[in-house]
Design a protein around this nucleic acid. Structure first.
Lengths: 352, 352
DNA sequence: CGCCAAATCGTTAACGTACACGCCGCGATG
DNA sequence: CATCGCGGCGTGTACGTTAACGATTTGGCG
């Protein structure tokens, strides 16, 4: 009836539960012979450890540091919500989340991390802006025994345990494919990005360019513009794009703060003449999609990213399960026809 | 340091843990005055029950019946995998899954359910083919205290506790939008569906038609064809479509077994002349997407559906949390540029 | 032979919760 | 006055696991 416990194993072999425990956990103070007998009996009875009992016994308090930038809020707030949801869902464990915010993706992360160097975290979640600049800090953390998982953006060659991101290369490729299937005329495509030193932004553009090169011979690529997440720069770049003649047929905005650019285009009545694909979703963007003024937005599912990242981290810390080094989520393609499913994405975890 | 337990509450009030337990659970044998004091102290100390201890103590064995059709295997096997993954992830609980398969979506569900009428399930997961025919059985189950959640397809007016599906209406609308943005010429669109009595299939076509009517004035709709999931019927319908002249510019296949139709189209060299959008993903379909022979497929995320459904069911049975009556997942739009992310979707839970 | 240390194993007390059981005092009843 | 019923409360045990501690045997070495 009931699943077997270590007591049952002990009874079946006429030994004590202490010995069974030693055998099952590869501890010392046990002879190889009895260890073998125990393990054999365990598999024979189909023993599986009772997580509730384990969690109750070793009432570990797990401290996790969460290092995310404040900007862009729509994205990272959602990411934080996913993290919180994961701890709520993982019953049976005391998780203490310490949220540490730094100003922007490209500034303040390393400083904050080294300022916290005396903190004792069991695990750390971080969105690194500049992957090379942060390597030293991550190595130091790992050496002190804290597991590090990168979220949203990766530091590939660092000592981080794993990374959970949306597949940026695919994001770019999808944008390119949507253009190639929507635009039948011959012409050019423009791109505005955030900061090309961030791995993800660079990857998006590579994916975009690769797809265009292979599958869209009728479309050519203009050089990418870096907005560095500064609204004024972005809107000036939008203007310069419009000045070109013939104007580009499509514009791929691969950074999440696309509003300045959209406003600039709208003021000049260009939104109807150029196909636009944006990145991520926030309330101000919804009307643009609903009205068809922009073709699509590629949603990076921050909520799901945060949830998955923390689940992986807890699984590693508590159950010693090594996560895959790279989890790539598939981005959601949000169009006019499905945008309403994502409208309340900030409230809870609707459509994921 | 440590989170407060009922012991701490008891100590703070100089009473026993038994009394605290009675107060917190609204049991009898306690005076209103002390109950109030306890509840007050509990919120004051920020008491939260320890799930591990609770799960250990009441070692409930939960039996769950899973009623899915065998066909279409690619879809429902994935659904079953999601269900299994959910029980693996919900540690601390003994869940016994009883898988009960019936032949096809439109046949055998009611019979199997009534044959199992003496089974005592705490919860049931079911994919009802014909919603009205199954209402009586579901009402009977609910009356006997078993929670019922519909998965993949819904029985809206029945006594089921909740339903987890992909939003079928949106699925259809997405297909229509993709056609409307890809096809610039004037012409007609055809649709082949499974069984219109199934709520989901009907919903898809409604969503498809609604979007075309509002946003694609240059496209007209041919009457929908029902294949009833029979390969020979499907391929004959494909032929009849091709006989029309001018032939339709787009074909939306809203059922998951699209292979017979695709084969028929391919043999006549029509796949390059007509835009095709299919439903769901299985190994044989992948090459068609990779080569661009079909425009897109709308993935209904069976794995995620199964996982979410069982999570909701367990949450209701164990924690008494009422799930939302209708959880609609957003379908994934799979194109040539992102199909590779979904290739190994059957193995584990890759990109979700 | 005696003694110490190492190797091997048993015993037990927690972890926080749920629940059966028992105890006490008070008013009602015979 | 003895007894009973009952509301109100305390006590104890069990759930399965872990880990500290004790107990026993064995082997080695002087």
């Amino acid at each position: 009836m009931k699943p077997p416990s270590i007591k049952d194993i002990a009874k079946a072999l006429n030994i004590s539960i202490g010995t069974v425990d030693r055998a099952l956990h590869g501890r010392s103070d046990i002879s190889p012979a009895t260890r073998k007998r125990v393990l054999q009996k365990a598999t024979q009875l189909g023993y599986e450890p009772n997580f509730a009992a384990r969690a109750l016994k070793l009432n570990r308090r797990v401290r996790i540091g969460v290092y995310f930038p404040r900007e862009i809020a729509s994205f990272f707030d959602s990411l934080r919500a996913g993290v919180r949801a994961a701890v709520a869902g993982s019953m049976a464990v005391n998780v203490e989340l310490v949220f540490r915010d730094f100003p922007r993706l490209d500034q303040g992360d390393v400083e904050l991390l080294s300022a916290d160097s005396e903190q004792k975290f069991d695990g750390v979640l971080i969105a690194p802006g500049n992957p090379t600049r942060i390597e030293a800090a991550l190595r130091q953390l790992t050496q002190r025994g804290t597991a590090v998982i990168c979220v949203a953006t990766d530091a590939p060659r660092s000592a981080r345990l794993a990374a959970v991101t949306v597949d940026a290369h695919t994001s770019g490729a999808i944008a390119a494919e949507l253009f190639s299937r929507t635009i039948h005329k011959t012409g050019s495509l423009a791109t505005i990005t955030g900061d090309l030193r961030t791995v993800d932004h660079a990857e998006k553009l590579r994916g975009f360019a690769a797809y265009v090169a292979v599958h869209a011979p009728h479309l050519s690529l203009l050089p990418a513009l870096e907005s560095h997440e500064q609204p004024d720069v972005a809107s000036r770049q939008a203007e310069s794009l419009l000045a070109k003649k013939p104007h580009p047929l499509g514009l791929y905005i691969s950074t999440a703060n696309s509003m300045p650019i959209l406003k600039a285009l709208e003021e000049r009545g260009m939104l109807s003449k150029i196909q636009v694909i944006t990145t991520d979703l926030f309330p101000e963007l919804v009307p643009y999609i609903e009205s068809g003024k922009i073709l699509a937005t590629l949603y990076q599912r921050p909520y799901t990213q945060g949830k998955r990242a923390l689940e992986s981290l807890l699984n590693y810390i508590l159950s010693n399960v090594t996560p895959p080094p790279l989890t790539r989520l598939a981005p959601h393609i949000i169009l006019r026809s499905n945008v309403f499913l994502f409208r309340n994405y900030l409230i809870d975890s609707p459509t994921c």
